[in-house]
Amino acid sequence: MFDIRATPGKSVSYLLPVLPFLISILFYIYASGERHKENPKDKLVPTVGQMAKGFGRTAFEPDRKGDYRLWLDTWASTKRIAISMVFIFLGVFIGLYMGMFPYLDKLLHTFFLFFDKIPALAVLPILFIVFGLGEVSKVALIVIGVLPTIVLDTYIRVKAVPKEQVIKAMTLNASTQEIVYRVVFPKIIPQVLDTIRLNFKAVILFLIAGEALAATAGLGYRIFVVRRYIAMDIIIPYVIWISLLAFMVDFGMQRWIKYRYRWLNK
């Protein structure tokens, strides 16, 4: 099993990825069973049945306000992420220009390098004071937390494009815009998309932090409200739901990058 030239067979290749999941689930069921033996009303480690019920209540039954919570929360959070993503994609262009034009490089690079080091969670109070408790502050938190990383990553990728290619394009009489958008940009975009994909985790982290502080709906909001009465039978399904959504976005993006940029790694 420690042979680096090993080629796992087909059945093993399907089985092995499932194994860690299976073990975690079995371990959970065991732990929850033990706790419930001691205290049948235990809420901290709910049984799978309790969680299924909790999930069902949030997804298919209206609460006392008449809301189907899971969908309401998912929609509220998705909207926040979508708006933040627009700004995060703008970061790609900031990085691109910063990498291409030396004056912009001098102007912005150090600033973003420093900006990137600011722990976004530490400036939360400032954000809330400046932007209020509405949607703006939540989006701002995500953008401040993730944008600099994307800018700097794009910048590094632009810098890594061989000079010869740019010079070659110039000798072929390409305009500045053509060099930026038809030579450099297509070359770096698959890797930049990969970085965005991997930073999705940070996006969710900041989303939940923002929602925990002030909101009327959202996945993070719900987790923090039901925490007040230890409704782990809702919290755990919500956590799984968030992870699952993020996993699917990640997986989908990975697939799409692989398909769209088939030429990469060839």
Binding site: P125, F128, I129, G132, L133, L213, A214, A215, V225
Partner: peptide
């Protein structure tokens, strides 16, 4: 309760945010 709009706000920021935002 249905007559008002409750916004869940964490106790760590509720005071500075309220003091700073006069529209609250």
């Amino acid at each position: 309760e249905e007559d008002v709009n409750i916004v869940n706000t964490g106790d760590s920021d509720i005071a500075p945010a309220f003091i700073a935002n006069t529209d609250q």
